[in-house]
Design a protein around this nucleic acid. Structure first.
Length: 1009
RNA sequence: GCCCGGAUGGCGGAACGGCAUACGCAGUCGACUCAAAAUCGACCGCCCUCACGGGCAUGUGGGUUCGAAUCCCACUCCGGGCACCA
């Protein structure tokens, strides 16, 4: 079996250590104590301390590599060696969100989740599971490219160096990963398949009837057979397929694709020199990465039609064992709203209607004006040449006292476009807008309502136009207030609302100080054919939607906040698109046989930015991607079926999210050059059907909507097209917490290096200057990172693992405290001492069985540890092991040696948590077999119950004593035992016992008068 | 503003509606030692008490219950997400 791919762990299977591993061994095998200390007679030679831990850790890490301990066999293919041995085991796929290999390396906050998954994976491996656990690298992205711009060093060089360093740091933690599966998204053999998935998206369309994606060829066939009409924006005249010419047909087909070119407003970030997805822009209009200003600009870019999956992305959350908070964030992000679309005829334009979306069709009678988004295409159509007579001066625009409506519209558009998202934010919710000069007709009551444009209506949501009901929508109310538009109430608020407003219960809406948005009784909503008066909100909605459908003025409708995924980036260090353009500018997908499209080597990585961020309004400010300058790569001749022709390549690259959308599939079959993953292997690890997917996926909650939504979308497309067998990629998701640490700022508010701060009298000083303490997520930016290498040096990796698992529940955030580490280190030291003589290094375990109480505690501990580890509650599992060790310490003191049955079980229970020291003791105990695959201890049920149990006795719910009763005693026996207790009897004397509550084995409560 | 989540000793944290504060850190005292370190042991929520014991404590105020850290309502503070989404 030959395993060849880039950037893998070095081939330890040949018996050679990796160079990185060697470095660790050499570095950490060095004793921490000086030779003088080492030879001092009163410091035991064989104490478990950092020096010994480092020796043990290096030894076992080398051994695991040599023995291929964590190679998980596939059922077939290159990686199937040894499968027969595990074929009877159940499979388990444990996955970490893979890291970006940054140059700074790891700090102790990073591996919290990795340690958690490793403990769980090792625990399950000891319960006869074939466990797949590996770690790859999400290595495309901005930092490597920005570093390249600064230094001229190729991103591949820095990326590979960073990956090597992270592998070294992770290896030193003793993580039981299958190294053969460690892919990096930047490997050509990897991104070849990222490009392949893009081709699948490009070659597919969404069939709304079957509710799934299908190959585009099937669409073509249906159009040619005439079983489907070419309904598309690219076919505005609704011509039949046979009436379209070749160019038109092509445009129609392209408009159906899941990957499509779109000319629309994008988030343009001049400082980063690229456009960004909506998900990458923060609420205050800045880039998620780097916090630079972002502007809305039109540009032709690739988009992925994720919106077609809105409903399924929403509905299938129910299949998942995920934290409710993450599901909720995804639901909110998808933002499904139910309501109606209503058409408002435009005055003087018999053929034009303005369609609006509303969630409150029950308030339709109260619509007193309309608003279009400034960039709405109908604005130019409806805007008249002259202002209507009597149109108020204040409506005509405060942006230049415009003589004509077209001028007012133009100047308002300019005003709105020039505002950055940040400026819009800074202005709060102040409403601005301008009258278009046009009127539309409210279909319910025939009112002529003025049509405005205003930037509080967004082109990207709903239809880009609203009906404004100021009485029942706060934004509309504020706009109406600003422009003195009529406010007509059509839902009667409850009396309490009027009271809270300080209004009399019959005050008309024109006197209200805010909109009433709650439920209420319909009023003033009657015409010749429908009435909503007296109806509640939901009845009124049903009634009016029925009426709208009847008269052809509207229909029920659903809208989503989710937008299609902007998929182009003007960067070098990303996956090239497998797309070329012909001389007409038409995009063509390359055939699969031409993959991979490799990134060309260039030397100038900088995106060309033609204007600085001070003048982003120039269209010329848009950049040319670095790849556009690789002209020898860009221009080529190809035969795509029409003979040899000239083409130019797409020079944008894919966003960083692309590679991370599917890496969990490539771990399964990393060396497959014929397919993304072999179907048999995919079914084996992922399972099939609604409850299939990765068994446990652990990562930070910061990926709640970005990565997790994109990955689910790609997986569903692959599912629809038959490439994977489960509708969802990640069955169980767990969010590990973050590690925080003290951070300090000086008087300018700048962070100072936390490790250099000293405490004096409850104050903190850096270089003698007092600084302010805050707590924050550990990291480079707060200058409070702690390197794992330092902890390995001072305590060993097992101690670091144990400490991180002990400080609290895995999903909680916890402060780092180097001071507290000594507690878990001493626990390991004490357990070691219980089994090994510190002076001689001899084992001092006895074959004599443990006493009954010790054995009972052992089995209770086994039961507790098993339960806790199943639930990923490692902190309480460790607490139980500490308690057992405390008892073992007493036994050793009394007996002079430790019972093997206890030591053996404890070694097995520690094996997932502190695998190196456990392996060492396992070997010294002379136990046979690989520890990693030895069965986890099982509790003896008969030892979990005691003969007697202490039960608290309460009087009126307060604990007043404790009695001992036989296990399984009756309620009467409990009561009798309690009454027999001298102190209880005394307290009960003279009182009337009204009631006795007995919960056998738990408590007795006397209720007295 | 809206939506989630949280609040327990000096600190990190334990507690199926039933002995609050497990386990660990820090602290106090003791044993060993000439001494220190290391190790081992005891104590360690607050108040009153020599003690026995009692009172009060799980952010605040109510409620349900024989019994509430746990369930319900309101509020305060902290953390996270969304934010003119019609």
């Amino acid at each position: 079996m030959e395993v060849l791919y880039q950037l893998s762990y070095s081939p330890a299977r040949d018996g050679h250590d990796t160079s990185a591993g060697r470095a660790i061994s050499a570095r950490y095998a060095r004793p921490v104590m000086s030779d003088a200390e080492r030879t001092m007679p009163d410091i035991p030679q064989h104490r478990y301390n950092a020096a010994l831990a480092n020796e043990i850790e290096a030894k076992w890490q080398d051994r695991w590599d040599a023995d291929r301990t964590f190679w998980a066999p596939n059922p077939t293919g290159d990686l199937s060696g040894g499968f027969a041995d595990v074929a009877q085991r159940r499979k388990l796929y444990v996955l970490d969100m893979f890291p970006y290999p940054s140059g700074a390396g790891l700090h102790v906050g990073h591996p919290l989740g990795y340690i958690g998954t490793d403990v769980y994976a090792r625990f399950m491996r000891m319960q006869r599971h074939n466990v797949l656990h590996s770690m790859g690298y999400d290595a495309f992205g901005l930092p490597a490219e920005q570093y390249a711009v600064q230094t001229g060093q190729h991103p591949r060089a820095t990326t590979e160096a960073n990956i090597a360093n992270m592998r070294r740091q992770l290896r030193a933690l003793g993580l039981g990963h299958d190294p053969r599966r460690s892919v990096a998204t930047t490997d050509v053999d990897y991104y070849r398949w990222t490009q392949w998935i893009f081709l699948q998206l490009h070659g597919a369309w969404y069939d709304d009837v079957q509710d799934r994606a299908r190959p585009i060829d099937e669409l073509l066939a249906e159009l040619e057979e005439g079983t489907r009409e070419p309904e598309s924006d690219a076919n505005p005249d609704a011509l039949a397929w046979h009436e379209l010419d070749g160019v038109q047909r092509r445009a129609v087909i392209d408009s159906y694709r899941l990957a499509y070119l779109d000319d629309a407003l994008v988030n343009w970030c001049p400082a980063l020199g690229t456009v960004l997805a909506n998900e990458e822009v923060t609420a205050d209009g800045r880039s998620d990465r780097g916090n630079h200003p972002v502007f809305r600009r039109p540009l032709t870019q690739w988009k992925l039609r994720i919106t077609t999956y809105s409903d399924r992305l929403l509905a299938d959350l129910d299949l998942l064992d995920w934290p409710e908070s993450i599901k909720l964030m995804q639901r909110n992000w998808i933002g499904r709203s139910v309501g109606a679309e209503v058409s408002f005829p435009v005055e003087e334009h018999t053929d034009v209607e303005i369609d609006v979306f509303t969630t409150r069709p029950d308030t339709l009678f109260g619509a007193t004006y309309m608003v279009l988004a400034p960039e709405h295409p109908l604005v130019d159509v409806i805007t008249p040449d002259q202002w209507p007579t009597d149109s108020p001066f204040e409506w005509r625009g405060s942006f230049g006292l415009d003589k004509f409506p077209s001028q007012a519209v133009a100047s308002y558009r300019e005003f709105a476009a020039q505002k950055s998202e940040l400026e819009r934010q800074a202005e709060g919710r102040e409403k601005t807008g301008v009258f278009t000069g046009a009127f539309a007709k409210n279909p319910t009551n025939g009112w002529n309502v003025p049509v405005f444009i205003a930037d509080y209506v967004l082109m990207g949501y709903g239809t880009g136009a609203i009906m404004a009901v100021p009485a029942h929508d706060q934004r509309d109310f504020e706009f109406a207030d600003e422009f003195h538009l009529p406010v007509v109430g059509v839902v009667r608020p409850p009396d309490a609302w009027f009271e809270a407003q300080g209004l009399s219960p019959d005050a008309p809406a024109s006197e209200w100080s805010e909109a009433y948005t709650g439920d209420g009784v319909g009023m003033a909503s009657t015409n010749e054919s429908v009435s909503l008066d007296g109806l509640g909100m939901s009845e009124a909605k049903d009634r009016i939607i029925g009426w709208l459908e009847e008269v052809g003025a509207g229909e029920a409708a659903v809208t989503y906040k989710l937008r299609d995924w902007l998929f182009s980036r003007q960067r070098y260090w990303g996956e090239p698109f497998p797309i070329v353009y012909d001389t007409e500018g038409v995009a063509h997908a390359l055939p699969e046989s031409m993959l991979p499209v490799e990134l060309p080597d260039i030397t100038d990585f900088e995106p060309r930015i033609l204007a600085d961020d001070a003048s982003p309004d120039e269209i010329g400010a848009l950049p040319e991607p670095p790849l556009a300058r690789a002209t020898e790569w860009v221009y080529l001749q190809l035969d795509l079926g029409e003979g040899l022709r000239e083409y130019r390549r797409e020079t944008n690259t894919m966003p960083q999210w692309a590679g991370s959308c599917w890496y969990y599939l490539r771990y399964l079959d990393p060396t497959n050059s014929n397919a993304l993953v072999d179907p048999e292997i995919e079914k084996y690890w992922m399972g099939e059907g609604d409850d299939g997917g990765v068994d446990l996926y652990v990562g930070g909650a910061e990926h709640a909507v970005l990565h997790l939504l994109y990955a689910r979308f790609w997986h569903k497309v692959l599912f629809d097209l038959g490439h994977v067998s489960t509708p969802e990629p990640f069955h169980r998701l767990f969010n590990q917490g973050t590690i925080t640490a003290a951070a300090y700022t000086d008087e300018r508010g700048a962070y100072v290096e936390a490790s250099e701060v000293v405490e004096r009298d409850d104050s903190w000083f850096h270089d003698g200057v007092e600084v302010i303490r805050h707590d924050g997520k550990m990291g480079k930016s707060l200058k409070n990172a702690v390197a794992p290498d330092d902890i390995y040096r001072d305590y060993g990796a097992d101690t670091l693992r144990l400490y991180e698992m002990f400080t609290g529940p895995l999903d909680g955030s916890r402060p780092w405290s180097t001071q507290d580490i000594v507690g878990v280190h001493k626990f390991l030291q004490r357990f070691w001492r219980n089994a090994v003589d510190e002076d001689t290094g001899e084992l001092h375990v006895t074959e004599v069985p443990a006493d009954d109480d010790t054995r009972r505690q052992l089995h209770r501990t086994i039961a507790a540890v098993r339960g806790d580890m199943d639930k990923l509650e490692f902190n309480t599992a460790i607490a139980a092991l500490m308690e057992l060790n405390n008892r073992l310490t007493r036994v050793v003191q009394q007996e002079g040696s430790a019972p093997r049955e206890v030591v053996r079980a404890m070694v097995l229970m520690l094996a997932p948590l502190t695998p190196h020291v456990a392996e060492e003791l396992w070997e010294r105990l002379g136990e046979a077999g690989a520890l990693a695959f030895t069965d986890f201890p099982e509790p003896d049920p008969s030892l979990l119950v005691d003969d007697t149990v202490d039960v608290p006795v309460q009087i009126n719910g307060k604990v007043r004593g404790k009695v001992t009763v036989a296990t399984g005693a009756s309620e009467a026996d409990h009561e009798a035992a309690a009454r027999a207790d001298a102190r209880i009897a005394e307290l009960l004397a003279g009182a009337t016992v009204r009631k006795v509550v007995v919960v056998p084995g738990r408590m007795i409560n006397f209720v007295v008068a």
